[in-house]
Design a protein around this nucleic acid. Structure first.
Lengths: 117, 117
DNA sequence: CCGGCCCGTGAACGAGCGGTTACCAAGTGG
DNA sequence: CCACTTGGTAACCGCTCGTTCACGGGCCGG
């Protein structure tokens, strides 16, 4: 039910504003101010799964299921790696902000927070 | 039947409110107001076993069985230690409240109570 | 065919967690 | 008041989990 389908089929398209970010689901684009973050499709999917659940902790297997579909194998590092890449691009486009927070042994949480620049 | 399984398989997800606390089983999170308590998975399991049985005394071996599964060995102090850790984090996130009460020689009881700040 | 980008995997490393133990304080009964 | 039981606390260590880097295959455009 909740799977990758939700990305392609659902077209809410509602533009979201989160911290400095402007998210355009229709375009698979994220803007920081006027700067384009430049996420790839996979990166954007991971980003969106978290951003749509702002301030909530999303379990690692749930992220996998929502983006890739199917069950996450025990040692699959995909989620980590893409979270890292998203973080990297966000920190470049929007320095002074932290967006994705780690919950050890649980998952990740999207919450825009100002940090020391 | 009631074992660790109940944590992962059961997804009631019903948010509970207890005293100042908001419990989100889906996220393995507890909030005190807007403050995040930050329990680890084990700590959260112990917390939940008690919180779900609010105002009832839960025997020490029962806690062990529900969280760890299997029988508690005579000198196992795991329950004590994790109750202490949960208490510690709760008291930081929600001062002025006492949540977990000791019943000597029996077990623990979860009941939100105001105390001197 | 070639070059660049994207995706996924594997390994190394460090941080954080979980379970144990030892010691001390508190409670209980004679 | 003392001996004994039970709970509280802190420190410790092995190991899981997260982060990061590096590499190779796949895809696409030129």
């Amino acid at each position: 039910m909740t799977s990758l389908q939700s990305f392609t089929s659902r077209r809410t398209g509602a533009i979201m504003r989160l911290g400095e970010l402007e998210v355009r689901p229709d375009e698979l684009q994220v803007l920081a101010g006027s700067r384009r973050v430049g996420l790839t499709t996979r990166e954007f999917q991971v980003f969106l799964v978290l951003a749509e659940r702002c301030d909530r902790v999303v379990l690692r297997p749930d992220i996998y299921e929502l983006v890739w579909g199917g069950r996450m194998s025990r040692r699959d590092r995909s989620v980590d790696v893409f979270v890292r890449r998203v973080r990297g691009k966000l920190s470049i486009a929007s320095p002074g902000w932290a967006y994705i927070h780690t919950h050890f042994g649980i998952g990740y949480r999207f919450s825009p927070e100002r940090i020391g620049d």
